[in-house]
Nucleic acid binder design. Structure first.
Lengths: 208, 208
DNA sequence: CGTGCGCTTGACTTTTTTCAATAAAGGTGG
DNA sequence: CCACCTTTATTGAAAAAAGTCAAGCGCACG
């Protein structure tokens, strides 16, 4: 695939900015190692993570292809290397390779779907619901085990769930008190009552 | 364009379901007359409108093209006719017409961008901020006049802004009390203090 | 070995929702 | 054209959810 010909490797240290909201979109990234995040920042400095990307994921394609500017910020969650594809070359490639365009369509559709769900969660569920859904998601991703690893520090997790660390902390504590989960060290959690967690995730809000 | 060959006209009465969340995606729609909305429904029955579509807009393409199922509900805001494009025929068309694929890419990118902003508003702004932003958006759309028309009944507007009618009503009342806006009949509003409205929309939350 | 950052907890405030009642508006059939 | 009835909008009072501010703990990393 001619894609490789136009790419350049870039690397970022933890916390380093990859692009900023509103900046001219000069290209997009494919993650090689580490993780990156795309997020929105409020005037007061609160952030909402839109997505976290790991090896194999790409981000910024939509902006590079059809938009003038990046619609959000991106930085490195941890030390991270990416393949960078410059805008113009990428555009030409897409325009001449129908298959590439179709792949991109599939990709954007997936992303759109995820955003739909994010909106649903933010607007229609309370924080416990979002947290429960996230825990179940992690469990599924990690082989349906009841023991799971939080893949982000709690500050970041809070931001991903559209809340703040204090609130996250309290709700985690409440879920433990009620025997839904158990804490196994800093970043590990054991699911004790999956059924209740599922109820909460499905927004039948009761929990005390 | 061969697109017309595969389409069929459909018509819906006010409130009629166009498709439901999770149903198999059998095709997509282009609005001819009237308006349609795409929305998510919570377990308790609260709804979050994702987008409202008018003549010339299309919706459901991503689902029809790449996904198995519709990611949300759709119904007619008012009496409404659409052109319906069946999934299979559309897919074949896109696969053989690169230009069509590129147009779709542009379209999905735009939509993705809008969703990004919706997430930002829901997560990072309070209701007054969202309302202020919406009023300014309507003003711009309607020719930058200070007199604007709410294009939706208040229940729907509340749902679009991720809140409930009561809250919307209160905040509208507050904005009047504070001289930011003036009510001119049921669905018309006059902007009196655009600068303050812009401040609020940009989330420097003060308003009292 | 200390400093700092991440995490937790408590007390308090603000925002939003809920519940309930009322008022206004709009369409329909007589 | 009007009366009726359903839908839509507003308001109050109370409750709940989440956020702010501030303090304190603990662990990691330099």
């Amino acid at each position: 695939m001619a894609l490789a010909d136009i790419a350049a490797v870039k690397s970022y240290v933890k916390g380093q900015t990859i692009f900023v909201d509103g900046a001219e979109a000069v290209g997009f990234h494919g993650v090689l190692t580490g993780r990156a995040r795309v997020f929105k920042l409020s005037f007061e400095g609160k952030e909402q993570i839109l997505e976290v990307f790991g090896p194999g994921d790409t981000f910024g394609e939509a902006a590079a292809l059809s938009m003038q500017r990046y619609p959000a910020h991106a930085d490195a969650v941890e030390k991270c290397t990416t393949l960078f594809f410059p805008r113009q070359a990428f555009r030409r490639l897409v325009e001449t390779h129908p298959t590439l365009a179709l792949n991109m369509l599939a990709d954007l559709s997936r992303r759109l779907h995820r955003f739909t769900n994010l909106v649903e969660e933010l607007s229609l569920k309370e924080v416990p619901g979002r947290l429960a859904a996230h825990l179940l998601y992690l469990s599924e991703r990690q082989g349906d085990s009841d023991d799971l690893t939080l893949e982000l520090p709690k500050v970041q997790l809070a931001s991903l769930l559209g809340t703040i660390p204090e609130t996250l902390s309290r709700i985690l504590a409440r879920m433990m008190r009620e025997g839904l989960i158990e804490s196994v060290g800093a970043r590990h959690i054991r699911i004790l009552d999956r059924a209740s967690l599922e109820d909460i995730a499905n927004a039948e809000k009761r929990l005390g």
